[in-house]
Design a binder for these strands. Structure first.
Length: 306
DNA sequence: CCATTAGCCTGGACGC
DNA sequence: TGCGTCCAGGCTAATG
């Protein structure tokens, strides 16, 4: 039987962790925030053991997680919407390939949380990484994922080459210079569909696609290939501006909070269009239009976007 | 070439 | 109160 006090402490710890990491619909800025907050907690840690609570949360190409045992986390970084943990092999030479990278796609609801040794799995914990910190203390890294779309991939460079998604990832939006976006926007499909295409550029999801197009003053239905070079560059700058602002606010796209945590106002102030269909445009006062493009809920301003 | 849709999944919002 | 239905999202696979 779990003592009441311990349960309470567990709950409190969880809430505190949730406060640090819960970001709705992780896109590039949210993954960047997760990576930045995770880094100081797991960098230099040795993975002692991995428990997979839901087999399907492992990528089909992933190496068996047993081979992660003994590796050391040497870097925590991001590529598009992927969180990446670089791994150093254990001292003893292995007879089988050892993963050098752990790639995690959070998809909709994936989340990392560090818990003390011995903490019980939560309702939606999918994978547990048992860690030994540089100071020899032990901890657990939980990969929680309510909707179970997220994926964990223990990979070697050779395996990554077989992962189409990885191989065809477009450039990092924040690294794109003038004139680099336009040539990637060929074709007659909607510009919003192109922005969501991870092979065009990596890391944009539904929120930042809509927000970027609003800031650039471009109608999301416009054929991508028909944007002028000037428009494409305005869009590139809008994308970068939105992403940078969001990262600066630690992924302020936080919602779903059990209120009263002080983040309720941030959501409304950050977004011009996302989730605001039917409401007044913050710039011109027109009623924002709801539509569906590329299968996604889309909001745009009929007056500000052409 | 392009677009659309189902499927994967759960919880929250909604109507009755 | 408890059903059923729909929706949200990223990505893949299949179909038009």
């Amino acid at each position: 039987m779990l003592p009441e006090m311990l349960r309470h402490r567990c709950f409190w710890t969880c809430r505190r962790q949730v406060f640090s990491y819960e970001v709705a619909m992780p896109e590039l800025p949210e993954v960047e925030t997760v990576v930045r907050t995770l880094r100081p907690q797991v960098l230099g840690c040795r993975i002692e053991r991995v428990d997979v609570l839901r087999e399907r949360s492992l990528h089909p190409l992933s190496l068996p997680v047993e081979r992660l045992a003994g590796t050391r986390i040497s870097a925590v970084r991001r590529r598009g919407k992927l969180a990446l943990l670089d791994l150093e092999p254990p001292a003893a030479a292995a007879a089988v390939p050892v993963p050098s990278l752990l790639a995690v796609h959070l998809r909709m609801t994936g989340r990392f949380m560090v818990h003390p040794e011995g903490a019980a799995p939560l309702k939606h914990t999918r994978v547990i990484f048992h860690l030994q910190r540089p100071d020899r203390c032990r901890a657990q890294l939980f990969f929680d994922d309510v909707r179970a779309f997220g994926l964990v991939f223990a990979a070697t460079p050779a395996l990554l080459e077989r992962w189409d998604f990885w191989c065809s990832l477009g450039p990092e939006p924040l690294d794109m210079g003038p004139g680099e976006l336009g040539p990637r926007l060929r074709g007659g499909r909607a510009i919003k569909a192109a922005l969501l295409d991870q092979t065009v550029l990596a890391g944009i999801g539904n929120i930042y696609a809509d927000e970027s197009l609003f800031r650039a003053g471009i109608d999301p239905r416009r054929p991508a290939g028909e944007l002028s070079e000037a428009e494409a560059d305005r869009l590139r700058r809008a994308v970068q501006e939105v992403l940078r602002e969001s990262i600066a606010q630690c992924g302020s796209s936080i919602r779903d909070y059990r209120d009263a945590n002080g983040n309720v106002g941030a959501f409304q102030n950050t977004f011009f269009v996302y989730g605001r269909g039917g409401q007044a445009c913050r710039r011109c006062g027109s009623t924002l239009e709801k539509s569906r493009i590329a299968g996604r809920a889309t909001v745009s301003c009929p007056r500000c976007q052409h």
